[in-house]
Nucleic acid binder design. Structure first.
Lengths: 220, 220
DNA sequence: AGATGAGTTAACATATTCTTAATGTTGGGC
DNA sequence: GCCCAACATTAAGAATATGTTAACTCATCT
């Protein structure tokens, strides 16, 4: 959420946090872009009227990056300046919310927008994930890299699929065991390492990163 | 509610019970801690002036336990000894109420504090904290500064995360040990310094400030 | 039955993180 | 301005987590 007025930012953040949302705020366009790029949020709320870089410009710059292709972006705008609506939607905005803001209305609007973004993600889920030059095909249980088809064993694939499902997130060993092996199977504690090894052998060394003492993550 | 004077205890209890609150009382610090640990109340009221273990000390000991992280703690203090206020809030107190106590004022104060604690419970800790140009991401276990991703070791991250969880608050060494290392591990007293050093090396020198004789704090 | 390959284990190697200890530096009371 | 306790710094090595390899089990296929 990007707005240059601290009061509005704080007011909206309070309401969102109360509902359980995880909110990141920035008070100007540049900072907003920096945070957005670092975190790739599900929903971006931009005030249109801001000094230096306005919300429309922020939106345009974000939309130029492929990772914000499907991110829902909405604007905050004063009722009067309805001309801005056009520019805002032109530039790739999904919605706009007019000030003055009524908390209940605002929250239900946010909820609706996030539902939309979730749906978009769910729809895109189909069996093939394409990240960082890897095409991960759930149906064929294969990974394609540089036109080359790599066959993975079931456990290897499941492990990779889990890590890739949230790129950047660190999965703890416990979490991996629970999600790939299930809660009832008990295996030795070197098992994951061996699978990680085989995965790295097959897809390349630099995709899966070890965070010592915490777990593993997939990264670009 | 902990107070060594039975009359005050009885007077306040009477008023609170009349309003429908469930009150537990103790007449000294040790007993207070014992009951608090057993019951984990929503609000803790501590008289500062008590023989043996005073309220500030009780607060300090409670704050060292993770289960009292978010419990609202308030003090009772005679108006004159306002110096105690400083120590009280330093040590993790949320508020202080001055004697002599006016029942109506006292009750509205308690009500306000309990409202605060309710809110605090609902708010789950965010996974991403954005302060002073640092984006601290618990899920990815990274810190981003000026578009640059900084990798921290586990302990370093935990230490930073603790300090950043309350920017400006001074964390005593004892508190840091208890929250980052846990109460059962015993390590030498230069260990924290070394970790602080490494943190400062990685994120920059001016974020973590030493308060000699007291502890460390995160500041902008 | 024998071959095959996935999954697991165990033993040992390696690497990073954490801690220690020795020594240097600071800041506030006197 | 001196002194001392509290902190800073550094490098070395202890502690741990992970990496690696090879061998073993077990099901499946031929």
């Amino acid at each position: 959420m990007v707005d240059d007025e601290p009061d509005i930012l704080e007011f909206l953040r309070y309401n969102l946090v109360k509902e359980g949302y995880n909110v990141l705020t920035a008070s100007n366009g540049e900072e907003g872009i920096k945070i957005a790029v670092a975190e790739v949020p599900n929903l971006i709320i931009l005030d249109i009227m801001m000094p230096k870089m306005d919300g429309v410009e922020v939106c345009r710059q974000l939309r130029n990056r492929p990772e914000f292709d499907r991110t829902v972006i909405t604007f905050l705008t004063a009722r009067e300046e309805d001309y801005s609506q056009i520019a805002a939607l032109d530039v790739g905005g999904d919605d706009y919310i007019t000030k003055p803001i009524r908390p209940r209305v605002f929250l239900s609007r946010v909820k609706a927008l996030l539902r939309r973004s979730e749906r978009a993600e769910v729809i895109e889920e189909p069996d093939v994930i394409n990240v960082a030059g890897l095409i991960i095909d759930k149906e064929r249980v294969t990974v394609t890299k540089d036109e080359e088809v790599i066959e993975l064993a079931k456990k290897e694939f499941e492990l990779l699929h889990l890590l890739v499902s949230k790129p950047g997130k660190v999965f703890s060993r416990e979490e991996i065991f629970n999600k790939v092996w299930g809660t009832d199977v008990i295996v030795g504690n070197r098992t994951i390492d061996v699978h990680i090894r085989k995965l790295r052998e097959k897809i390349g060394e630099h995709y899966i990163k070890t965070i010592k003492g915490i777990g593993y993550k997939f990264e670009f």
